[in-house]
Write a protein that binds this DNA or RNA. Structure first.
Lengths: 338, 338
DNA sequence: TTGTACGCGTTATCAT
DNA sequence: ATGATAACGCGTACAA
């Protein structure tokens, strides 16, 4: 493998001069620069980022730790992160935690060893302790989608509380009174936000909150499916379901389909996070779409800004608004409502 | 930051001994090992992978270059790669090329500088020259989903030619005779395979091939939408459309929806690659699903196996079979067929 | 403008 | 079983 020394020898200059040419640093005679550049090309010299990083103490490597790259929401976040990062020559390591704290810990460990410059993470739990290693190693960090009380870091999340409020208000406006909530795990902030928004909307609409209509599982299709089955077995059954994310909504649809029920004729369904291509496939679903791409890009930019800053920046919080997408006015409410 | 020397000094041993403890190498007295380990824990020592990689000449870093992380097919591939890699302590850098050769070249360059151990790539074109740098730098490589004639590397792809054949045979069995193909760019091998499968199925079914029914764009929704509109304007219009991938199919659905046409009543639609959650949303679509997760995991394993091998392995090719998923027998053929 | 000397943190090699 | 030395490839600090 060709090294900077080989190039230097061949060009008849010192290694540092080659270094200056590579990094487009000032202080190199134009003629010298041209000659060195030519040798670089001729020899197919490829600078070694590893050595450079070791020396400069920055890897230009970010990590994105999320719960499920299969979910279009996270996919879009990842794209936002990746685009923003590559604009500034950063690379992104992708890590799937699967909501598993053990996996999360293992990854975190390895990433710190690798000296990534920063980590964008959607923590599996709101446990402050789990992120302590980041502080110890002084690795920059941005929380995405999920807040962790007491953890000093930049935070980027969608205002899903507001999204929840508007979705439920929409249902109330359509005449629904028995609106169920199928939520994710209470240990992460968006679940709390969404339940709060749900409660606020009911109260604002003059409706009582029926705690038995609030179910909690995780943010996956299976969970949505199982909890929906529980709801559908009730007598009378709710006339509308608010699914706390897109995968839960898909699970609900699966349960409805099995029960021979249709949306919106038999039951209304709304959720947080868009279901991509839903409009092309079956445009019934009203959703509060979070600006996933923006969330990712914003997180990456905050992180890189922090890395570039000379002094320590104060932790910043960015809350992005959701977009309500009403694909079809949910039509008449089903029969179980008087 | 604590270094291996700091630990060594504190534990009263040489750095190399600490190294042996970290790497669980043989040749360290149990008592010494325990003492060193204790110091490591006390001092919160985090080994520096950068330095390790520089010295050992391996980064335990893979890269995955694909065209669109937004497509569920690629998402699933990515997950397979990531899972297989992390099993062996490798990290994965994710790169979106957007089918843009310039982006691809830029990424490739940066990845080589970073000394990634290997690259899994779905090349934007079948241009051998574009991958020459990989050879020069002797960086291991696995082609995924797309072959490049003359490029000596492991290849993993789905047998989408067979998938195409079976899908079209299915349509013929249902009585269709005017079956259109909306394909991706001819410059990449899966597009060629799918057209070949399409032609083979028609011929085997005793039907003539009408070249005007074969349209080619790219593998994105917009392309599928536009080409579908062209097809629908024809008189008589085809009774079935074979979309060469899932995003094209979604574009077709969009066009159909705008035209007030329904699947399968007015027109049949089949495609390569699954549309996730389609079954829960509207189970009409017959697809030939490629084993995306397996493809990713296989590619990663081939790559890591090659890295671990002492000697040079011959290039290997793995072709994985598609799975035909018939979500609902496509029902009676529309009226435009006699 | 260009160059010399050294260090970043680790491991390979060889020695004890 | 343990250690001394050098080297991986580059950039900083300082010198010329």
């Amino acid at each position: 493998m060709v090294t900077i020394r080989d190039v230097a020898r061949q060009a008849g200059v010192a290694p540092i001069t080659v270094s200056r040419v590579i990094n487009q640093a000032a202080g190199v005679n134009a003629a010298t620069r041209a000659r060195v550049q030519q040798v670089i090309d001729e020899m197919n010299y490829v600078p070694n980022t590893l050595a450079k990083s070791l020396r400069s103490r920055q890897s230009r490597l970010l990590a994105l730790m999320l719960s499920d790259i299969t979910n279009p929401f996270w996919t879009t976040v990842a794209r936002g992160v990746e685009d923003a990062a590559s604009e500034q020559g950063f690379h992104v390591i992708l890590c799937n935690t699967d909501e598993d704290p053990a996996k999360e810990a293992t990854y975190l460990n390895l990433l710190l060893q690798r000296r990534v410059d920063g980590i964008i993470i959607a923590p599996t739990t709101n446990d402050l302790q789990r992120l302590a290693a980041l502080k110890r190693q002084q690795t920059a960090c941005v929380l995405i989608d999920r807040r962790v009380a007491g953890f000093k870091a930049d935070v980027v999340y969608g205002d899903s509380g507001e999204g929840a409020r508007r979705l439920v208000a929409h249902l109330i406006e359509l005449g629904h009174r028995a609106i169920a909530l199928i939520n994710g795990p209470a240990t992460i902030s968006p679940a709390g936000d969404r339940e709060a928004g749900y409660r606020a909307a009911l109260t604002a609409g003059g409706l009582p909150v029926d705690d038995t209509l609030i179910l909690s599982g995780d943010f996956k299709q299976t969970s949505g499916y199982q909890l929906a089955r529980q709801l559908l077995a009730r007598e009378p059954r709710p006339t509308a379901i608010f699914a706390a994310n897109n995968f839960i909504a898909v699970g609900v649809l699966q349960a409805l389909s099995e029960a021979g029920l249709r949306v919106p004729d038999d039951l209304s369904l709304v959720c947080i996070d868009d279901v991509p291509h839903a409009s092309a496939i079956d445009p019934f679903l009203t959703v509060a779409a979070q600006p996933a791409y923006e969330m990712g890009a914003t997180a990456a930019r905050l992180l890189m800004e922090r890395l570039a800053a000379q002094r320590n920046l104060r932790p910043r919080t960015v809350v992005l608004p959701p977009e309500l997408i009403i694909r079809r006015s949910s039509g008449p409410v089903g029969q179980s409502i008087a």
